[in-house]
């Protein structure tokens, strides 16, 4: 339906941000993302727009949850 990838915000100028993922950089628009990301945040990019700021803590927690629960045998 919609291909989108997480990329790291490197620079912000008004409504534009430079985002990077493993050495690939691209300028994207920030018109649609709320809350506005800061440099260092990961955002989900679709068709040249940031759509979502990734909550780093929550992502870590979620992975940890599954790793732990799986080690205990579900």
């Amino acid at each position: 339906m919609c291909l989108a990838v997480p990329m790291e915000v490197k620079k912000i100028t008004d409504n534009w941000a430079v985002v990077e993922y493993e050495g690939t950089r691209r300028e994207v628009r920030l018109d649609l993302v709320d809350p506005k990301p800061e440099v260092g945040d990961y955002v989900i990019i679709h068709a040249g727009f940031a759509l979502h700021r990734i909550d780093e803590e929550e992502a870590k927690e979620n992975l940890k949850y599954w790793k732990e629960i799986l080690n205990k045998d579900i």
């Binding site: 990838v5 993922y21 493993e22 050495g23 690939t24 691209r26 990019i45």
Partner: peptide, 9 residues
Amino acid sequence: DSVSAASEI
């Protein structure tokens, strides 16, 4: 990794 990333994008 860089190729993999650009492919994803």
